[in-house]
Structures are given as structure tokens and as C-alpha cells.
Design a protein around this nucleic acid. Structure first.
Lengths: 226, 226
DNA sequence: ACGAAAATGTAGTCTATGCTAAATTGATTT
DNA sequence: AAATCAATTTAGCATAGACTACATTTTCGT
């Protein structure tokens, strides 16, 4: 089921920003303005301004001087763009004789222009592939659970086992606490329980039971599996 | 051979305006601001402003209060868009299972986003079709002579026979002169000769020989054949 | 812990493109 | 030929999104 939220149409720039933020945050949740500017080929002040607008629209969360992060809705959009981009690449290679190294620019433009219906027809023609020609995974149409690269620990459901990839904060107090708890990159944790209403998660780490609050669990980015 | 003129990239709006002007002028060379505004779904003053910019770029000729007309370059762009639009429609119907009535909107967006190379790959996959699913003709890659619907008489080469479709002026003096010469819509004329440097064309009309100056020949729009 | 360097944000400007309200031009009707 | 009406343009403004120059905050090396 796709979200039913009424949405104003997003501009091409908006889509580009959200996708870039998503991609930069796969190795850490908060994205630095400068990195984003470099990725988009823009001057940093332009990015600051756009981030402000995106955050007003609820697509991102911006902590001044700290970085941006996608909201749930922003992530949904980013995954949609990723799906489009990768399916277009797969289609161009599969049906129009493109080589795998020649599809990026084309997809970069088309991903903003194709309709959902065309994307689904292309997916169908391809047999609903799961990887694009570069081996990158293609999110499914809902995009919601296809996000298998980096997920905040707070979003991990009880029973799942994940690997912590990065602590997404620059606050040294928090970092020290996390290190003391053994919650550092590379650690494998199993979520035992999670309370609703932004409550804490109960984890099994190195055979021991640990509890982390929602705020910290949001900052711990994990990859599913192992 | 495609034109070698250095061109700044055209915006989506520019492409839309030029295509719309082209399409509206198929039944008369000068396009009225209001008609263009209606075709594009914009307010007339917006169109006036854009026409001014297009004319500064040499893409159109604007006679204030009289109408716009495409320049040679503007027509080239419009035909390129038409080729794109119609090939995309043909591809969607031929390869992705679209019905002929469902392709317009998709093509309307994609025509601005696809690369020349993708267009040519689609043309190749389709076997270089000459008509789109609606039966509209598809200009060739150069676009220069595919323009077979309405062409100014001044552009017709010696030896060709065309049908005059419309006298594109509102000046009653000129209109009376043209009528006296027998150069009215429906008349079939053969071009016998044409002088360079905006010189006159020599025609055979109803078995008689007539000469028209360049200015009037520009205003007589013809369709090739018959 | 402090001061320099790097990162980030603010202020003010620019361009493209759209809009509304008002003025102007050209056409039509008497 | 004057008056009116429709089409068009002008004037003034709005918004998205980019930029440069400058200010501020954070970070990092001592």
C-alpha cells in the first residue's frame, strides 16, 4: 500500500536533493552541507537555503551546523527516485542496447520525467528485477522496506539482527556513552524488544542485554543481515 | 547534417513555446498571443514576456500586436520536439503496451528529458517509422525537410509543386494583391525559379507564369504535394 | 583551553518564469 | 469618423533556486 498523504508536486531540484541526501547518508545519518553541495555541484549557501525549504515542507530535518537528515516522507521520495533511476538503467541496458556505463546520465534526467505507470511497465517488461546493471539494489514500489542498506536502529523491529555501521552524532558525550555500552561500528546486535511512543529498544550485544533510548537508537545506523 | 551553430541549452518552457507556436502556425504563419496563451494554459502577459525573450534569442520573430512566427532556428527546435514527441508515442505503443490514447501526457514530459541518442535508439527499435500512432508524421533527424505540412512559399525550391493553404497576413492591401494574382488558399502552384538574397520566386499558377516577392512568398503557407 | 581553520549560515542579488492590474493598440460597428 | 471592444503589451510583483561576499559557529591543533 502506498502512502495516501496529499502531496504537492515536487520539483526536479527537490528530488535531486532528497536522493543525494539519501545516498550520502548511507554511511552516516546526518549529511554535511558541504558534502551535499559537492555531490550536487552547487555552492554551499545554495544548499543551506534549499535545506531550509525542504525542512519547512517536512521532507528533511535540519539541525543548524549539524547536518540534514531525511524525514520519513523524504526518505520515501528518495527511495522512489532510486527505484526509478535503477529501473531505467536496467531497462536501457536490457531493451535498448545501452552498455552499463552509459546509462547513468540518461537515467538521471528520465527519473524526473517518467510516470509511475511507465516505471511499472518497465519493471514488468524486465521481470521485476531486484538489482540494476551496476548491482545496486532496486527498492520495491512501496520503497518502505527495500531500504536495506542503512537503517536507524530505532526502526529495527524486535527479532531482527543488524550490524551497527555508524554512530550518527558528533556529540562527544553521547559518543562516549555509546562506546561504554559497546555500541560501536562493527558490532552485531539483535533487537529483543522495542517500546512504542519513542520508547527504548532492548538489545542483545555480545551476549549481554542492553537498553538504549529512542534518541540514541535513532543515531545508530545499521545494515540488516549478519 | 545537423546544424553546427553553438546553442545554449534550451529550457523546458522554451521548448514548449516553440512547439506550440509551430503547431498553431500550421494553419497560418503568425500566431496570436492569446491563442498561444490558451494552448499553453498561461496568462497572455506571460506569453508576451516569453516571446520577447525568445525573439531576443533569435528563435522567433515578433511583430508587436501582430503575432509571432518561428525563425529558422526556432522551427528546427520545434521539429526536433515534434520528432521526439511522436517517436516516444510510437515507442510506448509499440514496446510497452500503451494504448494510443494514453501516450500523450507521458510523451509530453519525456520529450524534454530524453537524449538524442535515446531517441535514435527508439527510432531504430521501431524501424524508423514515418508516422506516429495517431497518424501524425514524424520529422526525420535533421527535421529540415520533414516539415511537410505547412511551409512558406519562399522556402520552396524550384521544381516543387505545392498547395497554398493560407495567406499569413492581415494586411488588406497585400491580401487584395494576392487575390488579384490568383494566389489564394487551395491554389496549386509550381515553383519555377527562386532568386537568392531574399529575391522573388517565379511560379506557374493555373498555367500562367507569376512572380512574387520574397516578403509575400514568406506569408504564403503551403503544403507539399498535390 | 584558546585561537586559527574549516564548515555553515545570513544577507543581498540575479535570472527565469509566472501572475494581476492597468494602459495601449487595432479592429469593428455604427 | 468616432466610439467601443477585444487583443496585446507594459508595469509591477512573486517564487524557486542559484550565486557571492560576509558573518558565525564548530572543530582541531597546539
Amino acid at each position: 500500500m502506498t502512502s495516501d498523504v496529499a502531496r504537492e508536486p515536487l520539483t526536479r531540484s527537490t528530488e535531486d536533493y532528497l536522493k543525494a541526501i539519501y545516498q550520502l547518508s548511507t554511511d552516516g545519518g546526518q549529511v554535511a552541507t558541504t558534502d551535499l553541495a559537492a555531490a550536487l555541484g552547487l555552492a554551499p549557501p545554495s544548499v543551506t537555503g534549499m535545506i531550509k525549504r525542504l525542512s519547512e515542507q517536512g521532507l528533511t530535518d535540519h539541525e543548524p551546523y549539524r547536518g540534514v537528515r531525511l524525514s520519513q516522507e523524504g526518505r520515501r521520495v528518495a527511495l522512489r527516485m532510486l527505484r526509478r533511476h535503477r529501473l531505467i538503467e536496467a531497462y536501457l541496458v536490457g531493451f535498448l542496447g545501452y552498455s552499463w556505463d552509459a546509462v547513468h546520465d540518461e537515467a538521471e534526467r528520465l527519473e524526473h520525467a517518467v510516470s509511475d505507470s511507465l516505471i511499472e511497465r518497465m519493471a514488468q517488461a524486465l521481470g521485476h528485477p531486484v538489482f540494476d546493471p551496476h548491482g545496486d539494489p532496486i527498492p520495491d514500489a512501496d520503497g518502505r522496506f527495500a531500504e536495506f542498506v542503512h537503517v536507524p536502529l530505532a526502526d529495527i523491529a524486535p527479532g531482527e539482527t543488524v550490524t551497527i555501521c555508524r554512530a550518527d552524532t558528533r556529540d562527544d558525550g553521547r559518543l562516549r556513552f555509546l562506546a561504554a555500552e559497546g555500541l560501536v561500528p562493527g558490532t552485531v546486535v539483535t533487537v529483543l524488544a522495542r517500546q512504542p511512543f519513542n520508547g527504548p529498544s532492548t538489545l542483545e550485544v555480545d551476549g549481554e542485554r542492553r537498553i538504549v533510548g529512542h534518541e540514541l537508537a535513532t543515531m545508530l545506523l545499521c545494515s540488516r543481515g549478519t
